[in-house]
Simulated assay, not measured.
Amino acid sequence: MRIDNLIALRYSRKMRLSGRKSSSYTQRWTQRQCFVLLTLISANLAVFVAQLCVELYQPGFVRDYLGLSDRGVRDAYAWQFVTAMFLHNGPWHLLGNMLVLYFLGRDLESILGQRHFLYLYLAGAVGGELGHLFLMPADSVLLAASGGVAAVLVAYATILPELELTARIFFVVPLRLKAKHLAYGATVLAIVLLCIDRTRTVSHSAYLGGCAAGWLYAHLLGFGRTSFLQRLLQQRRAAAARYERMSIDELMNEEIDPLLEKISVYGLVGLTKKERRSLCKAREKILQKTQSE
């Protein structure tokens, strides 16, 4: 079997796990170089080295001027929204984020394409920053690199929820779990950390906003199962389209006659607000039909 056929088979098998048809934004799953992914990882590494150097020669500068804070927003330090999204709270924080970004980002950039993968990462970073500003105390400072990584994780789980991933605890003990369960765990952990750790310099407060941004961005691109709100909107659109197609006879039999029978028994006070609106709409439609004829 040719390599192209193997790639296509791998692509179709994984995409079926999303529980929904492939989005129109889906790219062909190729083994091309992940340019945006490698650029983001390089940027995070470079910023971390610069962060260490700045802290060495000017302690407190990163926290006061580069991390996102309520004071910085009040003082119009607009650059904090850009600088904070690449800051990490230590080497282990950096290592964990870059491992997740690399192993999940390879497939995700191939699925979404370079442009949407970059937008996803930036949307997660901004979502994490906004979540921090709304949910954390005013005296806290955010090192927000985890927001973009959280968005990548949740978007991956939204697109391929049933895909089994293998991780190694302490690089030794294998742990197999589905992508959706990994996203559930990350979301629960974000909520728990948000409640118990509200210290002055934090990084975890970007998780929750990043998760929300990743889920929303994936759904806007057409991936994942439809949410309750989307199903409700679809039902309303279908009902409105059906109502427009109904003839006068169908309208009388299905909509007006049951309401008239109810009025004859209980009077107008027996109608609900929804039924009164339906009666008014039916009257307007009948008038429009008669005038057009």
Rank of each mutant, 00 (worst) to 15 (best):
P258G: 02
L38G: 03
V36W: 14
Y266L: 15
L9A: 11
S69R: 00
L118K: 05
R277Q: 14
V269P: 01
R276C: 10
V126T: 10
K180E: 04
A78Y: 11
S42E: 07
R32Y: 11
R242F: 02
T201P: 01
T272R: 09
V62D: 04
L287I: 13
A213Q: 06
R283G: 10
N97C: 05
L94E: 02
P174G: 06
S227K: 00
R16L: 09
A183E: 03
I3A: 08
N97W: 01
A238N: 04
D107E: 15
K274A: 11
A213F: 09
G72N: 03
I3V: 09
V47D: 03
R176A: 08
L193H: 01
N89S: 10
L143A: 00
S205E: 01
M1K: 05
Q58P: 03
Q234I: 15
V126H: 05
R20V: 15
E254S: 13
L120Q: 04
R71P: 00
L177I: 08
R10V: 11
L182S: 07
M85A: 02
V172F: 13
N97A: 07
G19V: 04
V49N: 03
A179L: 06
L118S: 05
I196L: 15
M15T: 05
N44M: 15
P258H: 15
S264F: 03
N89T: 12
H204N: 11
R2I: 09
Y156F: 08
K262L: 12
Y57W: 11
A138N: 13
A50C: 11
L45M: 13
F170Y: 03
L287A: 10
L143M: 13
L118N: 06
H132S: 14
G124Q: 01
F117D: 01
R115W: 07
V126S: 12
V202Y: 02
L68F: 01
L68D: 04
C211A: 15
Y156M: 06
Y207W: 03
E164R: 15
F48Q: 09
I111E: 05
R74D: 12
L68W: 00
S140T: 01
A239V: 07
A78C: 10
A155P: 00
R176M: 13
S69G: 01
A186S: 13
L56D: 12
T158G: 08
E254F: 12
G222Y: 02
V54I: 14
R276K: 15
I169L: 15
I263C: 05
V265C: 08
M252N: 14
A183H: 08
I196A: 09
L221C: 00
